[in-house]
Design a protein around this nucleic acid. Structure first.
Length: 853
DNA sequence: TTATTGCATGGCT
DNA sequence: AAGCCATGCAATA
């Protein structure tokens, strides 16, 4: 007897009913041609309409608030990271890459977390009964900000290299005096929580290639973190092993003072779980090449064993800054591998006579031996000159937590001539496994000097290779977007972008001319505050930038174009046709597709330079900035000097014909933008300029006002933000109101003068276009979408068809509102996306229509 | 009295 | 709002 299940393959899983985007709960796209992406894995990601194109209304990514390219600032560290969300322009590439993450903050679900890996004992050498410290020898930090890192990253995770190195370094042991303290990070290996997001992540995402992650990591340029990452990888392995074999070693166990949370016996791993004590673990992902199938399976199926607190990484100010050159020179020809751990700017207390260096808790718990008693243990640390110091690494109970300190640092600090504001760095050098304490003086170089030095290149060349001294005063920034901890020594400048960033921050926030400021007892605090301000400001600025990028997804759809080399194909899945793309869409120039009466399709595009509209083939893919000179399809009109094929009026009627969306077409949006944001100015200017074209055509993008640019004095921009200024009454005589009134009085007069003429003209043209409009979609009101076209304001001031009169009538009826024939002087320029019936444009347009004003 | 130690406090993130 | 951490400060040596 054969059971049915033994001969009948299990049925394929039912098709997902919701969008493939795990962050989206919308129903997947339906209809004869559903929307989705075919992943490089061959699978098909069935998406909802909204996620089909990687934009989200309001935000490009509702999950991570990324910009159009999928980038965002990590909310925790401020680094520029890619959201990795499907709702991003890079989503397609990232989907099968497993996603990317801010390696520091682990604020997404796609990336593997090291705890996942380490939770599995399979990769731990069974003979590793004793805690050993090992590291990744093959680590090669990036040499530059971005390019060239990918290859290095790939090498970095070379399987054989890493594994071999792992084996080689089993003999390493952390320099500790006591076996009882032979618990390092591994004992803190812990997994107590699960990350729900990861649960939501489709397995296919998690199981896919990690190369992209690596690339992204290196794109992020977090050298120090990388190193710390590797350090922790090893320790995690060890610790896991140790924890497995000797759970009683778990940090904090039987320690009433221990505040380490999440120490939970985990039946699955037979290990205590402590996520808090491994801050760095959270910022790490697991390299593809270092795990085998079993582990990958676990990665796929497992769940991140960390909670939100575990994800809170080391604060950026503790990130070590060191370049690959530094590392290389430190290690030299030897096999030494420098692993930057963390750094800390000395506070007044740290540098004071008291001789206690407060250690960041997470750093201490991540990189220093686990201590269960307040007395701690002596810790040997080698300084820059190779001299060995012994500090007492201990902690104080503090508010149900711990405060870690290094005691007895005064001699060392003094020997280094460090003062408050200087920065000490802690690294490990392997295979010796020694802790190395470097420093970076808050030396006095101006930002200009800093920049210059940056350009001059690496200042390490004078240092002998393999000299451990190099680690002293040689750390500098290699972390893009990372606020500096102070200006680094001029001879240490090695990088470009990062240093430039530092310089910028120094300029903005805290410029130390000679380091004296930092050496005051308040130096660090002041610096800290300044830097934070800088960072905050930076983030705010970037947010503003991203605001500029805001589009509705509908708009975005019309900006997106298939990749240039894409081969359109349609596959039929479950009876539905799917558009297949091999590459992610690209942002193109907004064009307007038209099908004329003869059935010929083409598109209209506007030159960025001359604003003339050119007729192009439908398959023309235009870059975001397209000019007449790019018009390879029409040699006669490949120059801005060439005349436009159609009059603006004709175009105004043609172009929007196809773009009338059901709710908020891009053209309508544009019109609204014009009306609301710069409508006053534009319209007024147009009126004043006496443009002969119909008003609609003057709403071309080229007339759009650059919103809220600094220094803008237009009547829109000079108004205070909504709610922040006095409301303008109709009798207001402020400059804004007077300008508005004056301009629109002029506008009104001119319009009035031409109104009859224009109406006649547009009516005539509309008659000619009626056949064309018959094939156009209609809006919810049954009106031709022409009505909401590019030139049509919501009030349909356009007088381009027979319905205009009705529209005008309606408007006049509507003008029974208090706004009748009034200028709304309380425009909210920052709310152009929320057009109000009271918008100025409306009021003004009514004003235009109403000669009573 | 001074230095050290251990803890508490409060600003800040 | 929780927690980190710089620093104050009392207790102690």
């Amino acid at each position: 007897m054969t059971s049915p299940t033994s001969v009948v393959p299990p049925p394929p899983p039912p098709a997902a009913k919701i969008c493939f985007n795990s962050h989206c709960k919308e129903p997947k796209s339906e209809g004869p041609r559903r929307r989705g992406w075919r992943l490089r894995s061959g699978e098909y990601a069935d998406l909802c309409d909204r996620c089909y194109f990687p934009f989200e209304q309001g935000n490009f990514c509702e999950v991570f608030h990324s910009d159009a390219a999928g980038w965002r600032n990590c909310e925790t560290c401020g680094k520029r990271v890619h959201c990795g969300c499907i709702v991003s322009a890079h989503a397609y590439a990232l989907l099968d890459a497993g996603g990317v993450d801010c390696i520091t903050c682990a604020r997404k679900s796609f990336a593997m977390t090291p705890n996942q890996i380490w939770s599995s004992p399979f990769h731990l050498p069974q003979q590793m009964s004793e805690r050993k410290d090992i590291h990744v020898k093959s680590w090669k930090p990036p040499t530059g900000p971005f390019p060239g890192h990918w290859r290095q990253a790939s090498n970095m995770w070379n399987t054989s290299s890493v594994q071999t190195d792992l084996q080689q370094r089993l003999a390493y042991e952390f320099d500790r005096p006591s076996n009882s303290e032979k618990l390092l990070h591994g004992t803190r290996s812990a997994y107590s929580a699960q990350e729900k997001k990861f649960e939501d992540l489709p397995e296919k995402i998690a199981s896919s290639s990690f190369n992209q992650i690596i690339r992204e990591r290196y794109t992020n340029g977090s050298t120090g973190l990388d190193s710390a990452f590797q350090y922790n990888i090893y320790h995690r392995e060890e610790g896991n092993s140790d924890g497995l074999q000797n759970p009683s070693h778990l940090a904090g166990e039987n320690d009433p003072t221990s505040t380490r949370k999440g120490v939970i016996p985990d039946p699955a791993t037979s290990s205590g779980v402590n996520i808090e004590t491994h801050p760095n673990s959270c910022k790490q992902f697991y390299p593809n090449n270092t795990i085998d199938g079993e582990l990958q399976a676990q990665v796929r199926n497992g769940r991140p064993r960390m909670d939100a607190r575990g994800r809170s990484q080391l604060l950026p100010r503790y990130w070590p800054r060191i370049t690959d050159q530094e590392l290389q020179q430190i290690s030299g020809d030897s096999n030494s591998v420098i692993t930057p751990l963390f750094e800390k700017m000395l506070s007044a207390s740290d540098a004071g006579r008291i001789g206690r260096l407060v250690l960041p808790k997470k750093c201490a718990e991540a990189y220093f031996p686990t201590i269960s008693q307040p007395e701690g243990l002596p810790l040997k640390v080698q300084d820059a000159s190779g001299k060995e110091w012994v500090f007492q690494f201990r902690f104080w109970p503090n508010n149900n937590s711990r405060m870690y300190v290094l005691e007895g640092v005064t001699p060392c600090i003094q020997s280094m001539q460090l003062q408050a504001g200087d920065t000490v760095t802690f690294s490990r050098i392997d295979p010796e496994g020694k802790l190395v304490m470097g420093f970076r003086k808050a030396s006095g170089i101006s930002a200009e000097q800093d920049t210059q030095t940056i350009k001059s290149g690496n200042g390490f060349s004078t240092l002998p290779e393999g000299n451990i001294k190099n680690i002293a005063a040689e750390f500098n920034a290699n972390l893009p977007l990372r606020p500096p901890k102070g200006i680094v020594d001029s001879r240490n400048q090695t990088n470009t972008a990062d240093q430039a960033t530092s310089s910028k921050f120094d300029k903005v926030g805290f410029i130390q001319k000679d380091g004296t400021a930092a050496r005051s007892s308040h130096g660090p605090n002041k610096r800290k505050g300044s830097l934070l301000v800088s960072k905050s400001k930076r983030l705010r600025i970037e947010n503003e930038d991203s605001m500029e990028l805001k589009l509705t997804w509908e708009e975005a759809q019309q900006l997106l174009r298939p990749p240039p080399n894409y081969v359109p194909s349609v596959v039929v899945i479950e009876g539905h046709e799917f558009e297949e793309y091999e590459e992610a869409p690209v942002l193109g120039k907004r064009t307007y597709f038209i099908t004329d009466q003869s059935g010929d399709s083409f598109q209209w595009a506007q030159c960025e330079d001359c604003s003339k509209w050119r007729k192009l083939p439908v398959d023309a893919l235009l870059p975001s900035r397209w000019t007449c000179s790019d018009n390879k399809w029409d040699s006669e009109r490949s120059s801005c000097s060439s005349a436009q094929e159609l009059s603006l009026e004709q175009l105004a009627e043609l172009v929007p014909a196809k773009t009338g969306g059901p709710k908020r077409s891009k053209v309508k949006v544009e019109a609204e933008n014009i009306e609301v944001s710069d409508g006053l100015d534009t319209l007024a200017n147009l009126a004043i300029l006496g443009e002969g074209e119909a008003l609609p055509t003057s709403s071309q993008p080229t007339t759009r006002h650059p919103r809220h640019r600094p220094g803008c004095t237009c009547i829109v921009c000079i108004q205070p933000p909504s709610g922040k200024g006095p409301k303008h009454k109709q009798t207001c005589t402020c400059n804004v109101c007077l300008t508005v009134k004056r301009r629109f009085r002029t506008l009104m007069l001119r319009r009035e003068k031409r109104q009859s003429e224009k109406e006649a003209e547009t009516s005539r043209k509309q008659q000619l276009l009626i056949p064309s409009s018959e094939v156009l979609p209609t809006n919810a009101n049954g009106q031709s979408s022409t009505d909401v076209g590019i030139c049509g304001s919501p009030q349909k001031v356009t007088m381009n068809n027979g319905g205009v009169a009705d529209e005008v009538l309606e408007h006049r009826k509507a003008s029974t509102s208090p706004l009748k024939a009034q200028i709304d002087l309380n425009i909210q320029p920052e709310r152009e996306e929320e057009p109000s019936p009271k918008s100025d444009a409306v009021g003004l347009m009514r004003l235009i229509q109403d000669p009573a004003i």
